[in-house]
Design a protein around this nucleic acid. Structure first.
Length: 239
DNA sequence: GCGACAG
DNA sequence: ATCTTGTCGC
């Protein structure tokens, strides 16, 4: 899958945190928060990254699932180094180069991206899911396991119960109970999606577990890839 | 000034 | 993110 079919928004690695924040402020206005996005996508991709050796080595994985059967129909990985230190709010710059490389290795161009991190629910309204959506041109959703910004009340205890995630007067996402009796997840729009549809898509991907099937398969894949990279020396330049 | 802070 | 066994509960 070519990442630059729509060269409107190239990925530019920032030199420092100040520049990174400037990039986010510049790109935030180009995010499509309305969508509504695909209501019945044929394929959905999950993206995740695993780390080893004190965070100096990483593996980024993308899995593409049939949206109905949830079977994996394509997958790709990229082993590399973090491209940026971990700074809350600048998380995307750490993982994006490896994720984009993995996306480029796909055979199938997925109709939707489900990212392991927030989209709009970000201090500058431009989290990983927004950035990935903009650079790939694909509809994207952010699904976080813990909050970054915002407050909420509830949600109820049943699968499907949800509550608005609010930050500084904005509804930036939804706190969604994907399974009864488990902690909720934090869903936000990444790009070319509406929040209601994003929530529907996440529910369709969580028939059994708290996290979307997409992120679960991607998580397994990047852990596997990382483990084999470590045993074979962990030396990237010689592989 | 003091915490909080996606993965 | 990652380091990590058993254990409480459905």
């Amino acid at each position: 899958m070519s990442v630059d079919e729509d060269p409107a928004v190239p990925y530019v690695p920032p030199a420092d945190a100040t520049e990174a924040r400037r990039v986010q402020e510049e790109l935030r206005s180009r995010v499509d928060l309305v969508g509504p996005g695909p209501a019945a996508p044929a394929t959905v991709a999950g993206l995740d990254v695993a780390y080893a050796q004190d965070g100096v080595l990483l593996a980024a994985a993308v899995t593409v699932l049939d949206a109905v059967s949830l079977a994996v129909v394509d997958e790709a990985v990229c082993v590399g180094r973090p491209a940026f230190p971990y700074v809350p709010g600048l998380f995307a710059f750490r993982e994006m180069p490896a994720l984009l490389a993995a996306l480029d290795r796909l055979t199938v161009r997925p109709e939707l991206l489900v990212c392991d991190g927030h989209g709009l629910a970000h201090p500058r309204r431009f989290g990983l899911a927004c950035h990935l959506g903009l650079v790939t041109g694909l509809p994207a959703i952010g699904v976080g396991k813990t909050p970054l910004v915002g407050s909420w009340t509830g949600p109820g205890p049943e699968r499907g119960d949800s509550a608005d995630l609010c930050d500084e007067g904005d509804v930036v996402g939804r706190v969604l109970r994907t399974r009864e009796g488990v902690r909720p997840v934090f869903v936000s729009v990444g790009h070319r999606m509406g929040l209601d549809n994003a929530v529907e898509r996440v529910l369709a991907l969580t028939p059994r577990y708290r996290l979307p099937e997409t992120t679960r398969t991607a998580d397994q894949l990047c852990r596997r890839a990382l483990a084999s990279a470590v045993v074979s020396g962990g030396d990237l330049d010689r592989r």
